[in-house]
Simulated assay, not measured.
Amino acid sequence: MEGNERTRGLTLKGESDAQIVAQILKDEGIDTFISSPYRRAIVTIEGIAQSLGKELIVIEDLKEVIFIGDNKIMPDKEVYPLVKKMFSDPEYSLPGGESFTNCQNRVVTILENIISEYEGHKVAIGTHGAVMTMMMGYSDPQFDLDFLLNTSKPDIYKMEIEGEIECINM
Rank of each mutant, 00 (worst) to 15 (best):
H121R: 08
L111C: 11
I115M: 09
C103M: 13
D27Y: 15
V131A: 00
F33Q: 12
E5S: 11
M86A: 08
E5P: 10
I73P: 15
G97I: 03
I42A: 05
A41I: 01
Y157V: 01
A49Y: 05
D146E: 03
E119M: 05
Q104C: 05
L82T: 07
L10K: 13
V43I: 07
N102P: 01
K77L: 15
N102V: 03
L56R: 11
V131C: 02
I48G: 14
K153A: 01
T151C: 02
M86F: 06
S116M: 12
L94Y: 02
K122V: 08
E164W: 08
L10V: 04
N169A: 06
I73N: 15
G69C: 05
E117L: 13
T109M: 13
E78F: 09
K13V: 13
F147Y: 05
F33T: 02
D146Q: 07
I42Y: 05
I59K: 14
D27C: 10
N71C: 15
I114Q: 04
D61R: 15
N150G: 03
D27E: 14
D76M: 15
H121P: 08
I66K: 13
S36A: 05
I73K: 15
Y138G: 01
M134D: 01
E166Y: 07
V83P: 06
E91R: 14
A22S: 12
E162P: 03
Y118G: 07
Y157T: 01
I125D: 06
Y80L: 12
K13R: 14
I24A: 03
F33S: 07
L62I: 10
I45V: 07
P154G: 04
I115S: 04
R39F: 04
P90N: 11
I165P: 09
E112V: 01
T151Y: 03
E64R: 11
M74P: 12
